[in-house]
């Protein structure tokens, strides 16, 4: 039965996608766009949703949440540069989170921190492409560092959400 999804799973994914969008907008509001001279720099709060999706639904759904979040943000905000940043950051985060979650010795905290760190890397790669200068690499260490702290926090917040979703799921099915 690998790979198949229940309707509940799909509904869950939809909800988590919506959550990811809301979180993105929230972090945009929290961090006004001028803090770092890089346009489109983001904290990565939406990783909460991606992480929850990963643990509650599945890997592919998590990827979909990451991709569609960026595209829908584009639809809402019209900011192509910001979209590319979200996309790259989200993809990088998803990739490492998938890898790390398979490792036996790594808990959700490690997964999240690794994911947030690579979110930063993804954004810098995007910045390199957009500005076509090497200078933006200067910001990389700081993004990675900040991201790591965010990652720990995100993991801490994700755990109850996943457990709650399980609980709701069980209740619903009954």
């Amino acid at each position: 039965m690998r790979g198949s999804r229940t309707a509940y799973d799909i509904a869950k994914t939809a909800m988590l996608l919506a959550l990811a969008l809301v979180l993105s907008i929230l972090e945009a509001w929290l961090l006004p766009r001028g803090i770092l001279p890089i346009p489109g720099f983001k904290l990565g709060l939406a990783n909460i949703a991606i992480l929850v999706t990963l643990y509650s639904v599945g890997r592919k759904e998590a990827l979909m949440v990451a991709l569609l979040r960026s595209l829908l943000l584009l639809a809402f905000g019209g900011n192509i540069v910001g979209c590319i940043f979200s996309l790259m950051g989200g993809l990088a985060a998803w990739g490492t989170m998938c890898l790390l979650s398979d490792m036996k010795k790594v808990s959700i905290f490690g997964v999240s921190i690794g994911g947030a760190a690579s979110h930063g890397v993804g954004q810098i790669v995007a910045a390199l492409l957009v500005t076509r200068t090497l200078y933006v690499v200067v910001y990389l260490p700081y993004l990675v560092l900040a991201g790591s702290f965010a990652g720990a926090l995100i993991a801490y917040l994700t755990i109850p959400v996943v457990k709650a979703l399980d609980h709701i799921g069980n209740e619903m099915i009954q």
Binding site: R2, G3, Y55, G58, K60, S101, K104, I108, V111
Partner: peptide, 8 residues
């Protein structure tokens, strides 16, 4: 499924 194990 292809879910990662719960290690909290």
């Amino acid at each position: 499924r292809d879910l990662p194990a719960r290690r909290f």
